[in-house]
């Protein structure tokens, strides 16, 4: 068994919206990521994916629950206590256009985290990180500004900056959703290679096909909860939760002859300010029974090993 790097237990995160209203963006999430493991967190817009990742980075405070990095409880860690952890735990954001400062050259962008952490041998480390991120040879890119790079190259610069500190774990929040499909595979392949070399990866995505291809495990989130999790191929080929079943059924297939029977859920993407009673999915659920509006089902084993779903019918 590889070492567990990130452990999130019963995480609850509330945001204040306006003067009185409080929304539970994350409402009891537990997940782990081990060294060399690639976990995908998928779900509709607003279901709490980014909040989960940002709380793990201590960018957003947890309302309750525990976050551990390796064997250290970092739930309430101060900024200075987080410093050594940050070296190990890095985050990459969605937008390669906004996350790079246009005034700095690539070499300075990649070197910045090294400076913050006061590390030496910067030149060497910058080159190594860039080459690991697929910017080879590094000389070709070191002196350039972000606007002189393609979108895919910019995202590689963000990854290089995250890799410069030689982290053991990466959180990647929609790392390819702003990029053309032609370059996405390169970035995802890179993350996959890093995983093979021992990094733990938690990737947030709303693209099930991408998750199916690259992740070992998939966690499906709905309205602040994980409603299904398991080995990627199991979750995709043998989904247990009615929400996952519907999600899988509407993903467009590239082969037009692959007949689709989309099970289109009507209604809107749900809003965490207004969580239904019982199973939070019941108002949209095609197979809901009377009990579903009062009983709030926990994750239970379903299907094969390590596969769990939160539905009273499993």
């Amino acid at each position: 068994m590889s070492e567990t790097l990130l452990t999130i237990e019963d995480l609850v995160v509330q945001y204040r919206q306006g003067r009185k209203k409080v929304v539970k963006a994350v409402d009891g999430v537990s997940l782990t990521v081990a060294a060399g493991e690639f976990v995908a967190l998928v779900g509709e817009s607003g279901c709490g994916k980014t909040t989960t990742a940002q709380t793990a980075m201590r960018m957003v405070p947890a309302t309750s629950g525990t976050i551990r990095y390796r064997d250290r409880d970092i739930t309430n860690a101060t900024q200075s206590e987080m410093r050594p952890i940050r070296r190990e735990l890095q985050i990459i954001f969605q937008d390669p256009y906004e996350s790079l400062d246009p005034r700095f050259r690539v070499k300075d962008i990649v070197a910045e985290p090294l400076e913050i952490h006061g590390l030496d041998n910067r030149d060497e480390r910058v080159r190594a990180a860039m080459e690991r991120a697929g910017l080879t040879p590094a000389d070709l890119y070191l002196e350039r500004y972000p606007h002189e790079l393609s979108g895919g190259q910019r995202q590689r610069v963000s990854i290089a900056a995250a890799l410069a500190l030689e982290p053991t774990m990466l959180l990647a929040d929609e790392p390819v959703s702003m990029l053309d499909v032609s370059v996405r595979a390169g970035i995802l392949g890179l993350l996959n290679d890093l995983r093979t070399s021992g990094l733990g990866i938690l990737m947030i995505t709303h693209d099930l096909s991408t998750a199916a291809h690259f992740a070992d495990r998939i966690c499906v989130m709905y309205l602040g909860r994980i409603v299904e999790e398991g080995p990627a191929h199991e979750v995709i080929r043998n989904p247990q939760h009615p929400y996952t079943k519907a999600l899988v059924s509407v993903v467009p297939q590239p082969d037009p002859e692959q007949s689709m029977q989309p099970e289109i859920l009507q209604g809107e993407t749900p809003n965490p300010a207004d969580v239904p009673t019982g199973c939070r999915f019941h108002p949209r659920c095609p197979v809901a029974t009377a009990a579903c509006s009062s009983e709030d089902p926990p994750l239970r084993p379903a299907g094969s090993d390590g596969h769990r779903a939160a539905c009273i019918l499993v």
Binding site: S150, G152, V181, S182, V183, R184, A185, G186, I187, L188, G189, D207, L208, S209, T210, A212, H213, I236, R237, V248, V251, Q253, P254, D255, Q258
Partner: peptide, 22 residues
Amino acid sequence: RMLFGATPDLLAQREVTSIPGA
């Protein structure tokens, strides 16, 4: 062909390959 090759397919196990360059 290369565009389809770069597109992940939910159910197919084939490899996805990016198109180099821009």
